[in-house]
Design a protein around this nucleic acid. Structure first.
Length: 203
DNA sequence: GGTAGGATGGGCT
DNA sequence: GCCCATCCTACCC
């Protein structure tokens, strides 16, 4: 296991999230998402930008669904996809500016038993949270968490005190049509808990 | 090891 | 009515 459950540090402050989307997407790697007894180190993220990033849900402006993306940073944006799954994003950039980071994979560090119960289809630990739909199931995150403040709990992100500096691989984002070649997917190099491992390695 | 196809329902034009 | 920031199963090497 690359990340340990020991010395879970402080909750990331709002100032961490109030920065450019790509910076936050990279810096979230190695941080630990905590919900109840379940915790997982973030090992894969994607940046969804404002401006001309047509792959972003915010690209067509404020709607009932996308309102939270335009709100204050450090809140959860959870959306429903393919009729079955919920995906977790973290809102970044100053209030009023769209930008969010999709959390795509976790390396479990605590609560593996409850994750297994929530993910009966997972055959091995690498399957528990190695995808955006899988990790919300494993962590017990649903659309009910849309808009919650991640600096307050019960859903939080912590910075492990003993965190090593990680090497980062960059690739295009997964499963999108627009801006399909933009290098906005970030992975912890060599980690076995990422999704679609074969697509890693652009740099 | 690999992939094609289906499940399933909300958002938006 | 079409599009989706997905996952699982069945099936094939």
């Amino acid at each position: 296991m690359m990340f340990s459950t020991m010395a879970l540090g402080r909750i990331l402050p709002r100032s961490f999230y109030e920065r450019p989307t790509i910076e936050v997407a990279r810096d979230l790697l190695g941080k630990v998402l905590v919900h109840g007894e379940a915790a997982g180190a973030i090992v894969e993220t994607e940046a969804y930008l404002g401006g001309d990033d047509l792959a972003a849900h915010s690209a067509r402006g404020i709607t009932d669904r996308t309102r939270v993306i335009f709100g204050p940073p450090g809140h959860a944006y959870v959306y429903f996809i393919y009729g079955m799954y919920d995906c977790l994003n973290i809102v970044v950039e100053p209030k009023g500016q769209p930008g969010c980071v999709l959390i795509r994979a976790l390396e479990p560090v605590a609560g593996v038993e409850i994750m297994r119960k929530r993910r009966p289809a997972a055959k091995k630990p690498e399957d528990l949270a190695s995808g955006p739909g899988k990790l919300t199931l494993a962590m017990g995150i649903t659309r009910a968490h849309n808009g919650v403040d991640l600096t307050r709990g019960p859903l939080v992100v912590r910075a492990p005190a003993d965190m090593r500096r990680v090497e980062i691989d960059v690739t295009p984002r997964i499963g999108i049509r627009h801006c399909a070649d933009w290098p906005l997917r970030f992975l912890v190099r060599g980690n076995r808990y990422v999704s679609a491992r074969k697509q890693a390695g652009v740099g």
